[in-house]
Design a protein around this nucleic acid. Structure first.
Lengths: 134, 134
DNA sequence: GTCAGTGCAAACCCTTTGCAGAAAG
DNA sequence: CTTTCTGCAAAGGGTTTGCACTGAC
């Protein structure tokens, strides 16, 4: 299992240092949406392993290398999504939780023509939901 | 023109103070996407009119009252959109600029069923684009 | 006169950065 | 060894807050 994570990092051109592997193991354990702080807490549950600076730097690096995706739905913090396949999100305003919407579950058509001289970098659909009892 | 802005605030249940009217005049002059800092600069171009705290408080108030919409596309700051009709956005990564996509220009179908016990608060589609020559 | 609104500065919080020491190859 | 990475603490930048003053009604 550890081998797989290391390979994944190497394939992405990321040197698999001890700290990066620790972080990668958490992220790639399953598809999930984690803030930097959550990753920091999870990686250091039982004992200090990775510093805050390294968590931030590593998440930024992984995102640039395409290993994870940044999800911008909350003005106060970034979520990192270990599911890098094209998909969308429900954002539960009350809990701050994200839930995936598989690409096949939603139909997005008639994409208008892009601003001149630009190419698409990505399309994000966010359906914000709140509890009925509000 | 000034009367219209004041009425707009009153209709939304917002006391039209001098500062709020100043800010509203800028926002409602046309459909646009402004950061808090931009509003602060615009409202105080020739002389000090409104403090930073009041700009932030007012934008938050307007957004809560439905007079403007927050647009979350950049982790570093919130944009405020004076176009409150349902629509979507192009986000130009290189310039940081937003451009509206009218609701009729895009087709979004097969919205999957919402998480249990929730209702939709809003749907945001963001098409991130970057310059071809990157 | 009362209560809401404003301004200033300080506080906040997430994130980034500078730099010295540690690790990887 | 050399280069890259890490950790710490400090700095940064957008936003919020505490509190006294001002303004609206």
């Amino acid at each position: 299992m550890k081998g797989t994570v290391i390979e994944k990092l190497q394939c992405a051109g990321v040197t698999p240092t001890q700290q990066r592997v620790e972080i990668a193991q958490i992220l790639f354990a399953k598809p999930q949406h984690l803030s930097a702080e959550q990753v920091l807490n999870m990686v250091n549950v039982d004992r200090p392993r990775v510093s805050k600076a390294t968590v931030y730097n590593t998440l930024g690096l992984f995102a640039r290398k395409g290993l994870i995706k940044e999800v911008i739905v909350d003005p106060s913090k970034v979520f990192y999504d270990s599911n890098t396949s094209e998909h969308h999100h429900f954002y539960m305003l009350d809990s701050g939780e994200l839930r995936d919407i598989e690409i096949g579950e939603i139909r997005l058509e008639n994409i208008p023509s892009l601003p001149e001289g630009t190419v698409t970098d990505g399309i994000d659909v966010v359906i914000r939901v709140r509890n009925k009892t509000d």
